[in-house]
Write a protein that binds this DNA or RNA. Structure first.
Length: 255
DNA sequence: TACCAGGTCCTCG
DNA sequence: CGAGGACATGGT
C-alpha cells in the first residue's frame, strides 16, 4: 500500500497532476503575483506588475540580478532597502558598481546583511559582465539557452543554484524553475520527495508546460504561501489554500 | 529575547 | 556526497 500523502517525483502521473492542481489552487486563491518587482524608469520603489512577464530593459535585468544576490538568505524588505540605496546613488549598472569603492558599496547595501560578501559578489558579477560579455547583459541573456545560461552563471563565485535560476527566469524570462527555502518547506509538508534542489526542480519542470510565465507565477505563489500561511514555526493551516491537499494541519491537531 | 529571512562558500569526515 | 560553520541586518 502506498501512503497517499507521499508523492514521488519522476515518472508518476500522480505527481504531475498534484503539481498542477496545487498551482491552480494557489493561483485561484492568491492571484497573479507580478514578479519580479522592478523599479520603473521614473519611479523610486520596485513595483509588482501582475501579468507582465517581460521582456525587461537592460537596467531592469541588472537590477533583478543584483536583487537576486542581495536577497540571499535575507528578508526581501532588507534587500529592497539596499536596492533603493543603489538606485538612489545612481550606481545600478555593471560599470558603475565595479568602479565604486568597496567601502561605499558596503555602506549602500548594509541593510541586506552579509554585506561584505554581497558587495564582493556584486563586484564579481559586474566585472564578469564587463570582461566576458562587453556587449551587455541583455544580449548575453537573450541569446542564451536556459540551461546554458544557468551553467555559465554557476561558474561565477557567489552565484549558486537559486540565484542562477532566479536570474535565468526573472531577468532572462527563460523557463527555469526556481527552488528556494519556501519550496522545500511547502512541498516537504505536502509530502513531495525527493526534497533536494535538483529533485524538486526536475519534478516541477517535468510536470509543468515549459513556459516561463507559469514558472514565474508558481515560484512567486509558493513564496506568498510560505510567508503568509506555510510559516516555519506557526503555520496558519486553518485558512491555507492548500489545506485540502496537505496533512500537516491534521497531524498537528491529532498530536 | 530568540528566531527568522526569496543562499553560498569552505572545510572536514 | 552531506553536515556544520561563517557571513550580518532588521522585523516580530
Amino acid at each position: 500500500m502506498s501512503d497517499s500523502r507521499i508523492v514521488y517525483f519522476g515518472a508518476k502521473s500522480a505527481a504531475k497532476s498534484g503539481v498542477r492542481s496545487i498551482y491552480k489552487k494557489l493561483f485561484k486563491a492568491l492571484g497573479p503575483q507580478g514578479w519580479w518587482p522592478v523599479t520603473e524608469v521614473h519611479g523610486r520603489l520596485p513595483v509588482y506588475r501582475p501579468l507582465f512577464y517581460g521582456p525587461h530593459t537592460c537596467r531592469a535585468m541588472f537590477e533583478i540580478c543584483a536583487g537576486a544576490i542581495l536577497t540571499q538568505n535575507t528578508a526581501w524588505g532588507n534587500a529592497l532597502t539596499a536596492l533603493t540605496g543603489l538606485n538612489g546613488a545612481g550606481v545600478m549598472s555593471p560599470l558603475k558598481l565595479s568602479a565604486l569603492p568597496s567601502a561605499e558599496l558596503c555602506r549602500l547595501i548594509r541593510s541586506s546583511g552579509f554585506y561584505r560578501q554581497k558587495a564582493e559578489r556584486l563586484k564579481i558579477f559586474s566585472r564578469y559582465i564587463i570582461s566576458r560579455h562587453p556587449e551587455g547583459l541583455e544580449k548575453w541573456f537573450l541569446d542564451a539557452t536556459p540551461d546554458g545560461l544557468r551553467a555559465e552563471l554557476l561558474t561565477i563565485k557567489g552565484i549558486g543554484p537559486e540565484t542562477a535560476d532566479s536570474m535565468v527566469l526573472y531577468a532572462g524570462g527563460k523557463a527555469k524553475f526556481v527552488v528556494d527555502a519556501y519550496t522545500h518547506r511547502v512541498f516537504g509538508r505536502l509530502g513531495f520527495i525527493p526534497g533536494t534542489y535538483a529533485g524538486l526542480q526536475e519534478g516541477f519542470e517535468t510536470a509543468l508546460p515549459r513556459d516561463h510565465r507559469v514558472y514565474n507565477e508558481y515560484h512567486a505563489l509558493i513564496v506568498a504561501l510560505g510567508k503568509n500561511y506555510c510559516r516555519k514555526n506557526k503555520p496558519v493551516c486553518a485558512q491555507c489554500p492548500l489545506k485540502s491537499a496537505c496533512s500537516t494541519g491534521r497531524i498537528a491537531k491529532k498530536g
